[in-house]
Simulated scan of single mutants.
Amino acid sequence: MEFLRLIPFLILPVLAKMPPLITLEEHYLSSATPDAMKGLFKEQVKFVPNIMEKLKNLSSLRLADMDKGDVTLQVVSHAAGLGSYPANYSRAANNQVYQAIKKATGRLAGFATAPMSRPAEAAVEFRRAVTELGFVGALVDNHDGKGGYFDGEEYDAFWAVAEELDVPVYLHPTWPSDDMAPRFQGNFDSIASNSLGSSGWGWHADTGLHVLRLFASGLFDRRPKLKIIAGHMGEMLPFMLQRIERLSGRWSTTQKNFTTVYRENIWITTSGVWSLDPLRCILASTPIDHILYSIDYPFTSNEVGLAWFKELEASGLVSQEELDAIAYKNAEKLLRVKV
């Protein structure tokens, strides 16, 4: 009996190691989302249980799911696709998140969505969401809906907002445009085509390409304090870093080399990639304070993320200090939030 009374004290040191968790790539669908856009999620609807119910919920169901994964603070962002629609859709979505944040008593924060197909309006909505609604940055689609990227002069006002307000832009994958889609079609089922063009491969590679386009355009020379977040273990960039550095010197007359940009201007998240193998590579190439824990909810469950995090804790790959940094301290510093 004496031994049983000691059990709580014996397990407390183990439990105390578990840090609070902040997650940064966590999605929803606003009530203003066009029906045509909802149709993009047909693969997820088929394979992820209750996905639409979870995407639409910004209250009790979402908070309960956070508790299942020990998530202390979730930064909410709109699911891919809305940036190709007029600005009123982004504005309505941001307003809805703002109301949810107020009701959630410190459990939620917001990344702005922006109408990236309309660059000037995107800059205006981005500024409003940060300065008036208190959002901690923006999460935007990887292209404008028609395959256009954001390395042109027309987007400079958008990037200027990010640098001036000192908030990050999360460059998030989105569906292939009409001209991209045939590249992922072949002698296989349409389900495979849809997946290859999106979360199965294509939109990850395309997001990594976009970061390289921004670099090649000289954006990080013009905006040296810019902060870009890339999800899914860095959208393939960490694994090609040495080759990119070796060859990118041929591309242009940028003042910064890519390794400097990667170490100073790029943050990566763990979202949706539940293996320690890619993290081993990332830990060797990426500053520890630029690695952020994330889930990709509700496309992945918080419980799966928590199991991975506990595996990382037990692996010996990182110290307790580094584990805390990945869990929440890096996000606190980058986003100026506090758990």
Rank of each mutant, 00 (worst) to 15 (best):
G208I: 05
S90A: 15
V130A: 04
P115W: 10
R91P: 00
A93W: 02
N95C: 07
N94C: 03
P176S: 06
P119H: 09
V130D: 02
G137R: 08
G137S: 05
W159S: 03
A122F: 08
D221L: 05
D141E: 07
G134Q: 03
A100D: 11
I191V: 12
A100Y: 08
F220G: 07
G145K: 05
H210M: 09
G137P: 02
K225Y: 01
G208L: 02
S190W: 01
A112K: 05
P173S: 13
P119M: 13
D179G: 01
Q96E: 15
W203I: 06
F158D: 00
A122W: 08
T207N: 03
L209G: 01
H204A: 08
Y170H: 11
V140A: 12
Q185D: 14
Y89L: 14
S177W: 06
A181M: 15
P173D: 12
A157C: 01
L108R: 09
G197F: 03
Y170R: 02
L165M: 04
W203D: 05
G147M: 11
A181W: 11
I101E: 09
Y155W: 08
L82N: 00
D179V: 11
E132K: 12
G148D: 06
E153V: 08
D179T: 14
D178F: 03
G83F: 09
D151P: 01
S190Y: 02
L82C: 00
F188M: 01
K102D: 14
W159T: 05
T105C: 09
G145V: 04
P86N: 07
R118E: 13
A138F: 01
M180R: 08
Q96Y: 08
A109R: 13
A123F: 04
A192R: 15
